[in-house]
Design a protein around this nucleic acid. Sequence first.
DNA 1: TGCATTTGCCTAAAGCTTTTAGGCAAATTA
DNA 2: TAATTTGCCTAAAAGCTTTAGGCAAATGCA
Lengths: 192, 192
Amino acid sequence: MARVGLTTDRVVRAGAELADEVGFDQVTASELARRFDVKVASLYAHVKNSQDLRTRIALLALEELADLAADAVAGRAGKDALVAFANVYRDYGREHPGRATAARMRLDPETAAASAGVRHAQMTRAILRGYDLGEPDQTHAVRLLGSVFHGYSSLELAGGFSHSAPDSEESWTRILDALDALLRNWPATPTP
Amino acid sequence: MARVGLTTDRVVRAGAELADEVGFDQVTASELARRFDVKVASLYAHVKNSQDLRTRIALLALEELADLAADAVAGRAGKDALVAFANVYRDYGREHPGRATAARMRLDPETAAASAGVRHAQMTRAILRGYDLGEPDQTHAVRLLGSVFHGYSSLELAGGFSHSAPDSEESWTRILDALDALLRNWPATPTP
DNA sequence: TGCATTTGCCTAAAGCTTTTAGGCAAATTA
DNA sequence: TAATTTGCCTAAAAGCTTTAGGCAAATGCA
């Protein structure tokens, strides 16, 4: 019997492509097997189960995103860095909707701690060095940026901003302008 | 044979509770049937298929959220309204994680247009009347707020902010302070 | 109250996905 | 070339989804 040359890596990559084509939650071992022209059981030598497959796709997406982000911010600072960084997330979500959804998947704490997710947080902090924020405000800002990137990408993917003016492109630009202004002018803790 | 008294409404409500208990994507017709002590096929008289069930749970969640939000903002304005509104989203996500995930589900355009989603957008606009924003900036701000609420809730649910200082509560408060400051001070479109 | 109709839940069955166990042949190593 | 490892296979069990057809309970009407 001819061997197709399955490896965990190839299976996960094919899973990521499948996710982009049919949606992350339509990724099944069966469909993947069909694409490799292989029996389903054969896949189970390379991933523990279908949950494991999905988790690996998520980890792959997080790494790809982190690599792209690292590239984008290299040699930039201030608003320039912020915009480049933010666009990586948005563009990734539009080019790879399945992977992007995967990247938003809930991971158990240990898996998350060992994932490229930590690089994302570090890079966000690095960008904030271009603004004058001490702790704990820097952490608040990291969380705010994460929420906006995450949320915008997800709403845009869900079609929330299509079919209505102004177009998403313009909102995105202006939101980044606004975030930049906010970070330059972060309000002091109000005295209660 | 004793009748349990299934209706579409009861099935969907039970589905929403199940979602909160086991996670939205673990909601299956089989499990629901088990809880009603009924055969699976019986459910299919009340929902078209399992996708229909999930969509109906999402619509229920959107309505509940809109009702809560409407209550919360009644009689409030400015930052007070913003904070009350925002807290509805965050609290709902923490009290009803499954429903909240459902509310973030991708709906097809017609379904979305007929959903309580439009009330959410209207209420967000109403809150922004407390700030001095013209069009198209008001729309940009609606999208920003949607992204933040959506994103923060989703990250918090995924455990992104637990096990690290400062606690999520504090970040949330400070992020709302920051958004209020931003809306009061929305930057003009930069001249290119 | 008695009868007709509607409705609610059932059984049956087919098709699909997941997952495990065990086997044989191809690839690798010695 | 022989021994070992590895890759893919068949088989099979178990669960979820969905449709079709049937019977009995609830409802409506004379």
